[in-house]
Design a binder for these strands. Structure first.
Lengths: 152, 152
DNA sequence: TTATCTGCAAAGAATTTGCGGGAGG
DNA sequence: CCTCCCGCAAATTCTTTGCAGATAA
């Protein structure tokens, strides 16, 4: 059966080739923020004949078709994630001590951003927010371990 | 006399070479978001012997020393801007029709972000926010033209 | 069929790095 | 002086592209 992303492709009138179907499946089953190399790795597990050039081409196509968005978390490469719908609009908090990325959603933030754009004379069409933080280490208070209280 | 950024370098104990002094001056006098190539162009106007490799190396050094931050506005290259202090923390709204970048600051947003990070168990150490928008075309309302009343 | 897509390898663009001479403290 | 820095050019890394054969509609 077609994956969620594959259905989106059909809906948008894209030609459904085998590589695209596989890439669509991988995207549908990923809930992290893979870069192209990681995507290619997962794609290869399903079909070793698919080249990384096709992954690049397909991600560009999917981006233009509003199926995925590109993200940048500071390292040099592009990361992708599926667009799930307005309700899902979320953002990222990156733990600078581990590099781990977590997602969050906040209504007040959504509203605030729209209003800020409006006040500046714009209609908001997209937005990226990344927070970088260090763990508050609740436990440290108890066992005094603490460790890296330093930043970046 | 030393530029603002040059003074920061000294304060942080960096060796002040001539190329660094020039790059520091350029940064101090820039209020936009130049990429490395643009920086190198401005630097060359002051001292044509400075190579782009040095600009890259220096920007990396300044970034590590928290003198500038790197930004990414969607095109492939890194952009830099001076860090002026907590009070100045601002964000960017990119006009997707022209690519023009404008800055804004919003207290409510600052507070909200800190709280969100806290709720997730983190202390906020940095954050990036970019809004992408299209102009609201105030005039359209008068001549009944556009009427883009909201739908995304 | 027929336009589009794909793999391959080569090309491009942005950024990094090794090296020997040069400069700052 | 002695270490760190710089210019140069070559090397890396990420991404794009030309081409000829393969494929979806």
């Amino acid at each position: 059966m077609e994956s969620r992303v594959a259905r989106l492709c059909i809906e948008k009138g894209l030609k459904m080739t085998e590589p695209r179907r596989v890439i669509a499946r991988v995207l549908s089953e990923s809930d992290d923020h893979p870069d192209v190399e990681a995507l290619h790795g997962r794609v290869r597990d399903l079909d070793p004949t698919i080249s990384i050039a096709t992954v690049y081409r397909t991600m560009k196509l999917f981006e233009e078709t509003n199926i995925v968005t590109k993200r940048d978390f500071g390292d040099g490469r592009a990361r992708y994630e599926e667009i799930l719908g307005d309700e899902d609009h979320h953002h990222h908090l990156i733990d600078v001590t581990t590099g781990q990325v977590m997602e969050f959603h906040n209504e007040a933030l959504e509203a605030l951003k729209i209003r800020i754009a409006q006040d500046l004379g714009f209609k908001l069409v997209d937005h990226h927010l990344e927070l970088f933080g260090v763990p508050l280490n609740r436990d440290a208070k108890r066992d005094g371990d603490g460790g890296d209280s330093g930043g970046k």
